[in-house]
């Protein structure tokens, strides 16, 4: 069962990535990339990393990709001269792949509702993860938090409009 799911998920992942790379419309590319991240998250779950799978959905698909989408829509980058055609056919691959991802999730939940099959010691729960992160790797967490702070200051500095020069 796990091997079938692996092949199905890798097929979805690689197809969505290919469609993302060759899309002309950046909005569609973002949607296909989000789809790929969903299947990657299920793969992480299969590998015994449920916490990382949750982050993949929350941080990558939920935060970073929505930020990309926001910037694309704010700058108005979608191509204006789109070819005319039936609307639903261009969404068909997205719908099929997304349905397959959701089916994989439902199968996982139906097979093992309490997530007990991942009984190996490397199936890391939030408690072990937090103890390791703030015990053994506390210094690295400090460094990374400084990096995030610097990135926020840099983004603010780049994004503000200087008084006197620059357009309003």
């Amino acid at each position: 069962m796990a091997s079938i799911m692996f092949y199905l998920l890798s097929l979805i992942l690689l197809t969505a990535t290919l469609l993302c790379i060759f899309q002309r419309n950046p909005v569609h590319a973002v949607l296909y990339l989000v789809l790929g991240f969903f299947s990657l998250a299920i793969m992480f779950y299969l590998l015994g990393a449920p916490l990382v799978a949750a982050w993949e959905v929350i941080v990558y698909a939920g935060a970073i990709m929505v930020l990309f989408l926001f910037i694309i829509m704010m700058l108005g980058l979608a191509p204006q001269d789109r070819p005319e055609g039936p609307g639903w056919q261009r969404w068909l691959p997205f719908v099929i792949l997304m349905a397959a991802v959701l089916a994989c999730t439902l199968v996982i939940i139906a097979l093992d509702p309490a997530a007990t099959a991942q009984g190996e010691p490397y199936s890391l729960g939030p408690q072990d993860f937090g103890e390791a992160l703030f015990g053994k790797y506390a210094l690295a967490v400090q460094v990374v938090s400084f990096q995030l702070l610097f990135a926020a200051v840099g983004a603010y500095n780049l994004g503000r409009i200087q008084r006197g020069k620059g357009k309003p």
Partner: peptide, 10 residues
């Protein structure tokens, strides 16, 4: 990746 996305999009 989050820091890179913030600075890059700015």
């Amino acid at each position: 990746a989050a820091a890179e996305a913030a600075v890059g999009l700015a």
